[in-house]
Design a protein around this nucleic acid. Sequence first.
DNA 1: AAGGAAAATGAAGAAATATTGAAAAATTCA
DNA 2: TGAATTTTTCAATATTTCTTCATTTTCCTT
Lengths: 221, 221
Amino acid sequence: MNEKVLIVEDDFDIQSILKNYLEDAGYQLVFAADGVEGIARFNEKISLVILDIMLPKIDGFGVCEVIRSKSDVPIIMLTALADEKSQLKGYAGKIDDYIPKPFSAKILLCKMEAILRRRCASDEGEQLIYKNLKMDLTGHHVFCDGTEVVLTQKEFELLKIMLENKGKVFTRQMLLDRIWGIDAYVEERIVDSHLKNLRKKLSGSYIKTIRGVGYRIDVEK
Amino acid sequence: MNEKVLIVEDDFDIQSILKNYLEDAGYQLVFAADGVEGIARFNEKISLVILDIMLPKIDGFGVCEVIRSKSDVPIIMLTALADEKSQLKGYAGKIDDYIPKPFSAKILLCKMEAILRRRCASDEGEQLIYKNLKMDLTGHHVFCDGTEVVLTQKEFELLKIMLENKGKVFTRQMLLDRIWGIDAYVEERIVDSHLKNLRKKLSGSYIKTIRGVGYRIDVEK
DNA sequence: AAGGAAAATGAAGAAATATTGAAAAATTCA
DNA sequence: TGAATTTTTCAATATTTCTTCATTTTCCTT
């Protein structure tokens, strides 16, 4: 447990209601008072985002678009705009739920739990298993056919992210953003370099190259 | 694709609204007019349940409890009882969403899609389907009759743009602008060239030539 | 209906680009 | 400091992209 929730909301009263209610329910909260801050505060550790629409600097739809471009994190829009058009616009941006203000904190909590319950296996398991490969995430071990393969930090993260998203192509930039961070200034070729070493260590054709796009680990058949 | 939805609802008008709207959206519907029938009609093939609360014989909460005892299928309650207490009771039974009547069919559809998107197993990513052709955009795969066809990047983009705009004629210049960028300086014939290769790989007459104008993929009948 | 012009197709080779492998340089960590 | 890791760089290789031109098809004119 101990889920981090990012709340992007400029209304102080609502911030304070959420603070009381959600912290009591055991969530760790991260607040942002405008769109730019919301985007800046978002990271891989966040399990859910609560997003207002009318925000200073960048509005909720914009924030949603930026976050969605790099993550499938659940997003709940919490806003005074109750009209159908805004709602549909929200859902078009792949949000998970839309709650018009005024809202009931109890119901918000229920909805959050309903959504979090549906989350995919990725972060609940301590282990990732793929073909004859086993990753022990807590212990930072990787086994190939039962024998341990020692990976460096970067190799480990690379493999982890790709195994958590089997079937999805990652561009080098996406991998850089997720492993090195969006503000890291490194050559894009660094990804190739680590991937090469990873492939050599794993001695199996797990990672496919999609020329002109990036890399992918195929879904198991 | 082709998801089965179980609708447990005794109001004939709502049955008929849902029938029109959801069938158009490509869902396969199974109707039940009371709680007992709802439980009887439920099976492993059902991807989602839409549940009224006030039902003959067994009420929605009861049906929910029975279904939840054997399955994690997503459940949406759709009911006239808008009070908070009923909603909380619903969420306590591990439903996924609660929509008070009167409801907007469009929003129901959005919510259904948001919930289905979150499902663990069959998380296929974004897809474009046309006749016996399937494009998996997240995975950068193309399947023709189930077998994979490997496309180069330009071929992939060409097919993607045309499939996203079925029925629209693209001039070579339009395709150049969208794929190569408006400032690219390349021969217009490059489009023909890639299109030829694409046609050969797909082995089916998907892409029509509009002489003197450009190319088009017809809308499906 | 025949001939000619315009447009589209097919194919092949050249040019450009992306990926890989490998190794040197820089950095981090103990 | 020394070892391991990370990052950069670069040449070799593989693949794609682009150009060109001959061939075929379609359409228009007579």
